[in-house]
Every structure is written in structure tokens, then in C-alpha cells.
Design a protein around this nucleic acid. Structure first.
Lengths: 235, 235
DNA sequence: TTTTTTTTAATGGTTAAACCATTTAATTGC
DNA sequence: GCAATTAAATGGTTTAACCATTAAAAAAAA
């Protein structure tokens, strides 16, 4: 029913105070906290304990610590990096497999493309075309590493087009982690590259026509082919 | 192109060594690391620096630190708690709104229920019925707090039924964080409670019939009603 | 003997003071 | 003016001691 009341850990109290100040916008991103030697006085603690608190805040992605005379703890804008780092740990530990990830991707990515199509501005579509053109160039140059990067960028950008940060971070997490395997397990080849290019061309066309259902169907098929190859190779 | 080679931070090196040992299963969950005073000798560092490393590992969810004579750093089984903590930070900071979350939920939850229906064992369905019965009891007793808990447990359990940890953690994250708002903004009332009970009754029936499409349609409607009420009240 | 209480020892948590390494700004010398 | 040097502030690290918590061992009581 109840949890223990007080952890008897001073550094936790310091973490909570600074975290609350950041979350309540009392400390804006970019703000520099006082120097360790000053903070330790404010919190009436030792420097070691204060530093443990700063370490935790840094790991949470709330502050960034810089060296040198103008250095110190700077309040960061909260982003999805810590989530992605934790997800990467789950994957590295084997708790989550590539099969799990790509199964999830089949379900989520068609919904995501549909939403992106509804909300796409003409600028968004231009950006997609720019990325596709870049991917084509990589194909011509046989620069598969940059091709993979551009492929990831296209998927991530579709996430951005949803205007919903939840979709954005899910999409970014999934693709960042899938591409890690991708590079390791799948030697790039021309067929796959062409498949990808053709798929994206069709998706952009559907987006221009505001045909969410069509865009959704194309990406579903695109992802399913990928899933089958991956699970076929890594059962 | 390149990142700076060495951070000149000793504790980072300690973090990486221990993290790698855990991820490569050289240190199994439940293993107790040597005492701080021994570890500091092994890494040839000071206790303060070593403790900063342990703090980071603790925050990453890789170890748990206990007090007392049998205490110390114990290797944890990696789970989704750190991801959910980070997501909660994103939400608290305002980077993610309830509208964002529930829009995502509409898209994901029907896929999730469909998958759960495909994979449901008879034990799973029994557990769902047990949870529904508990929810009914809360309704009779007008115990809305426990009702909300049970509602969350049912949604989370549907995630478990997918047998896919990605769906599980997404479902758990979403609902844990939605219910936080739920409690704050929506005074519980009989209509909503009855709606929820009826929805779950239908979903369980569809699961028994292995009718994923039906189960999916019911949950989609269930979530959509919730989304409309929430976005209506929090525009 | 069994139970309760006390003691003990190992562990993490904290403090203090000093020194090292990095970085930028101020100073110096040309 | 410009380059080299110096100085100062900051985080990073070390050391040595003490405090607080916990569970096992020992002692006392029943």
C-alpha cells in the first residue's frame, strides 16, 4: 500500500529540487546553474553528494555539463534521447528482438503514414522529394551507407509530419534501432534499393493526392517485405 | 564526422565496463557486485568517482543499490521502467500533451487488440474475465479509485497478451501516463464506468470467438469516445 | 531449549580539504 | 595589431575519515 517515506539519500532530494525547478520552467533551457562549489552551499551538502545528484540529472537528460572556466551544468531542452538510449539497452540485452520491433512497425507505420498524409503541407512534400532525390543520387553513386541514412531520414520525417511528438519519437526510436541491425545483417543490394525508391515515389504521389489510404497501403507492404526478409534471416 | 575520442571522465569508463559486462551476460541479474571499497581498488579509482559511476548505472536501470551489511549493487533484469520515467518527464515538461497521447492511442490500440486476440490463450481470457469481475465489484462498491486501477490493468494485460515487449511497454507507458491525467481531470461517473464495463465485456467475447476485427473495432470506438471527451475538456 | 535483546561488523551514504585538468579571458611582449 | 603567455574559474579526482543502516552473531532472558 505505502512506500517507504524517505530514502535517506540526500542526493535524491537535490535531484528532485532541481528537476522540479526545470519541469516547472523556473529554470529555462540554456540556463547555467551555479558552480558546484556554490550549489553545495545552497543545498547545504558536500560536493561529492552534489555531484552524484548532477550525475543523475545528466543521465536523465535534464542538464548537460561542460568543462572549463565558462563551464558548468546547463539546463537542456527535454528530448527523446534518454528514451532511445534506454530502448537501445533493451535491444542490446536481448529483451527486445528485431522481430519484435518490426512486428510493431508493421502495425504502427501505416497509421503513421495515414496521419502524415492528412497533415502534410506542401513544404513537407517538397522535403520528402528532396530526400528521395538524395536517395536516388546515392543509388547512382552506389553509396549504400548514405542511402541507409537517407532512408532513415525519410521515415523519421514522416514521423515529423504527423505533428505529434509521440509518433515522432516512436518512429525515430524504431528506425534508429532497426538500422543498427540493418547495417549489421543486411548487405545492401540493388534490388532492395530500387524497391525502397519505388515505394517512396508511390508514397509521395499518394501524399500529393491526399490519399491517406493508398499511402498507408504502400508503406504496409513496404514494411511487410522488410519484416519477412528480416525474420527469414533471423528466426 | 568524428566525435572527441576520450571524455577524460574516469567514471564513464567504469560505467561502460560494468554495463558491457551486464549486457554481455557476464553479470547475470541478481548478481551482487563487490563492495564499493573493493570495486574502487579493481578500477584503480577513488570511491567518489566509483560512486558517480554506480549512480549512472542505477539511473539507467542496470543495477539496484541496497543498504546494510548484505547490501551493495545488485544487477537488475533490464525492464521498461527507465523508458517510462523518461516519457513521464516529456509529458510533465509539456513537450507531450494528453491530446498527443490519446491520438496515438487511437491508432495503436486497435492493432494491439487484434494481435492480442490472435495470441490469447485460455488462461489469458480467464485473467481478463477475472479483471472484469473485479472492475464490476468496484462499480458496485462505488470504489472509483480501484476501478481506474483495474481499468489500467486490463489495458496493460492486453499488451502482455501480444507477447511482444514493444507493444507491452508502449501500452504500459501510454496508460500509466493517461491515467495520471484521468485522475486529475475526469471526475468519475456512472455512465463512463458502465460504458467501460460494457466495452470490455464485448472485447472479451470477441477474443473468445477469435474475432480480432470485432475486438479491434470495439476498442477503437472505446478509445475514440475517451479521446473526444478529453480533447473536448482540454482543447 | 526457545525467545528476546544486545552487540558487532560490513555495507552504502556523507563530509571535508586538497589537488589536477580544461577552458576561456586577461595580460604581456613583440 | 597579433601572437604567446599567464591567470582564474570551472568540473574531475583523490584521500581519509565518520555516519546510518542492516543482518548476522552473540549474549541474555524466559
Amino acid at each position: 500500500m505505502f512506500k517507504r517515506a524517505k530514502q535517506s539519500r540526500v542526493f535524491q532530494d537535490v535531484v528532485e529540487q532541481i528537476q522540479d525547478a526545470i519541469l516547472s520552467k523556473k529554470l529555462a533551457p540554456g540556463t547555467r546553474l551555479p558552480a558546484e562549489r556554490d550549489l553545495k552551499e545552497m543545498f547545504n551538502t558536500s560536493r561529492g553528494t552534489l555531484r552524484e545528484a548532477l550525475r543523475v540529472l545528466e543521465q536523465k537528460g535534464l542538464i548537460e555539463i561542460k568543462l572549463g572556466v565558462t563551464g558548468g551544468a546547463i539546463v537542456k531542452r527535454i528530448d527523446t534521447d534518454p528514451i532511445m538510449e534506454s530502448l537501445a539497452l533493451l535491444i542490446r540485452s536481448g529483451e527486445v528482438s528485431l522481430g519484435h520491433l518490426s512486428e510493431f512497425r508493421i502495425k504502427i507505420e501505416s497509421s503513421l503514414v495515414e496521419l502524415a498524409t492528412e497533415r502534410a503541407s506542401s513544404d513537407d512534400i517538397q522535403e520528402m522529394e528532396r530526400l528521395l532525390a538524395k536517395a536516388r543520387q546515392c543509388f547512382d553513386n552506389q553509396d549504400w551507407e548514405t542511402f541507409l541514412q537517407t532512408d532513415e531520414a525519410m521515415h523519421t520525417f514522416i514521423g515529423t509530419m504527423t505533428r505529434n511528438p509521440v509518433f515522432q519519437f516512436v518512429q525515430k526510436s524504431i528506425h534508429e534501432n532497426i538500422h543498427r541491425y540493418y547495417r549489421d545483417y543486411l548487405p545492401m543490394n540493388h534490388e532492395r534499393t530500387l524497391e525502397n525508391l519505388n515505394d517512396f515515389e508511390k508514397i509521395i504521389a499518394a501524399m500529393k493526392a491526399k490519399d491517406g489510404a493508398a499511402a498507408s497501403a504502400i508503406i504496409a507492404d513496404h514494411v511487410r517485405r522488410f519484416h519477412e526478409k528480416m525474420t527469414g534471416k533471423n528466426p
